[in-house]
Design a protein around this nucleic acid. Sequence first.
DNA 1: CCGCTTTTTTACCATTTGGTAAAGACACGA
DNA 2: TCGTGTCTTTACCAAATGGTAAAAAAGCGG
Lengths: 208, 208
Amino acid sequence: MTDNDPAPKKAPSRIQQRNRTRILDAALNVFSTHGYRGATLDQIAREAGLSKPNILYYFSGKEEIHVTLLNRMMETWLDPLKDMDPEGDPIEEILSYVNHKLDMAIELPREGRLFTNEILQGAPRMEPYLIADLKPLFDDRAAVILRWMEDGKIAKSDPAHLICSIWATTQHYADMAAQTVVLMPEQQKREDGAREFLNQLFSKLLTP
Amino acid sequence: MTDNDPAPKKAPSRIQQRNRTRILDAALNVFSTHGYRGATLDQIAREAGLSKPNILYYFSGKEEIHVTLLNRMMETWLDPLKDMDPEGDPIEEILSYVNHKLDMAIELPREGRLFTNEILQGAPRMEPYLIADLKPLFDDRAAVILRWMEDGKIAKSDPAHLICSIWATTQHYADMAAQTVVLMPEQQKREDGAREFLNQLFSKLLTP
DNA sequence: CCGCTTTTTTACCATTTGGTAAAGACACGA
DNA sequence: TCGTGTCTTTACCAAATGGTAAAAAAGCGG
């Protein structure tokens, strides 16, 4: 029984892996800055160093590339939220989430912008995913935080809006980079300053 | 001397006013959801109830419409920040800014998304404006807040990142509406809850 | 009602868009 | 070295894109 299952999906060749990676990377650049409709296959092809028909050999169309990127992103993106441990120290857990989220915004800004673009457009391709996956996770984490509050371990506030505010403040440094760079030209101040500030902001909120 | 100055720009007729308004309103819908490149003149025309050539009778091209919208938006958008009074009560002033900004995000979400879209794209049309207008205002307000901190009137933190976090948390409710609606289906909880939460968040940060 | 300006429509146009068909180049095991 | 399956290119296409020219229609002051 080597690989003869109903769906005989053979392992992708080295070339396939390389080119699919190239395409997805180029597409991430284009989709994340111009949004779905503003992105063109020609630009993706140019950036990937492949011809347009060649790209359509690997993906069935523009939409499939976009969906692939979105799915891939959501997985890594939600991880830090999943990692929040209900048994851990509440303030530590939440601050650790803040810091992980900030790391991602700084290290993977394109992924962040891809998501923001999709939501700005009204989440036409993501909505089912938001309802099926994000919402349950969100509710669950909000419930965990609420329990912490009711147990008097952290100060009371609205858990849902707390999560949103963490998302918003960290995401800001990815999405609005073009603005932030103008307002705070020195990278040091931008990144380390952001971390220190956010830790202070949420520490104060959470400390009873 | 009725109107014979060097540039004899006659007053726009009623028709002109009405149609320019229609066009800008339709364009705001389209640009704010699809970004500059994703927006099409055809769609703007359809939404405005005018023909495409008719639109190009009022505006010289796609870009002029976009720029007009951006300029108009920036003016109203920066007002609340300008209104912060150095002589007023610091916490009151800052919280009032938070609340005004939140009002705008809730009442004028399209304008907010228009701006976010432009920044996501790297601010190609806005950067000069950011440098010439936003930056000086931003630095000035940061300086005001810093003075308040040094005078011991509010707790110390990074003023620049404070302003950014206010921007981020309030803007979130405009930009990410499609997500927020899924996560918090009841409008009441979304809007009033946001206000209460943000007031609490920034009160705690600022109280010495 | 007339004549003149403003506004709108019709008919285009070159370019770009997402996508396809089919031939050609390539890799690689037998 | 050959053949077979994988990959790439060339040559297209219909539709949509931003934009134009010019004629037709609508307003409107006199």
